[in-house]
Computed example of a mutant assay.
Amino acid sequence: MTRSPSRTVDYLIHEAHEIITAAIAAENLPVDLDHECGDDCDTCDRLDWLSRAAGSLDVVLSRFDRYSDGRPISGTVEYQHGRTFAYTFPAADPVPGERELTRFALAPFDEGMPSPGQAVIYADDHAGTLRVDLLPGNVIVGRFNR
């Protein structure tokens, strides 16, 4: 792995990661059951193109694991057994200190049971670190989709 050669490339790397994230999200959109497309479906063609482009970007990005200033480009943290949260650190000048990124209910151990609590994900963009706090408590949630 290698460090990005310049600040300009840092910004390109960050934006490419954002495109990949959007492509993954688009692939995971619920499929309209009434959508009976043929061979000439513009929506399906665009999603296929986005998926292929994201795959190509991912190959190029795999060469870099650090921004030009030495910070990691991305990181993951496990918040529940087998479940991880992925994050791309910003390429812009990071502010020191931790900040809360998100919080969400943990998946119930069994369907129909309440959540065992919440996960709170924190990032320190300057240090390039992620941290998770698990807060206990019964949080009632709907069905958990992976």
Rank of each mutant, 00 (worst) to 15 (best):
A105Y: 05
Y87D: 03
D42Q: 14
D40I: 09
M113Q: 13
F104E: 03
S51C: 13
A22T: 15
D39M: 08
L61M: 12
L12H: 00
D42K: 09
C44M: 08
D10Y: 08
S6W: 11
T2P: 04
E111N: 12
R99V: 02
R7G: 01
G55Q: 06
A16R: 00
F64D: 01
A105R: 09
P5A: 02
P5W: 01
F144H: 13
A123V: 06
S6Q: 10
D32E: 11
V132I: 09
A119T: 10
A92V: 13
S51K: 15
A86V: 14
E98K: 02
P96V: 02
P108Q: 12
L12G: 01
V139S: 13
A92R: 11
G70V: 07
R3W: 03
A107P: 14
G38K: 13
R103M: 07
I140E: 14
I20H: 01
S74F: 08
F89L: 02
D69A: 14
V120I: 14
M1H: 06
N138T: 11
D93Q: 04
P90D: 04
R46G: 05
P30E: 08
P30R: 09
M1K: 10
S74I: 00
V60E: 01
E98G: 03
R103P: 02
T8C: 04
M1I: 06
D58N: 13
E18Q: 15
D39I: 12
F144Q: 10
I73P: 00
D48N: 09
I24R: 15
R146G: 05
G117K: 12
H14I: 02
G55I: 02
A119W: 05
D93C: 01
G70D: 13
T8W: 05
E100H: 00
D110T: 15
G55L: 03
I24W: 14
D110I: 12
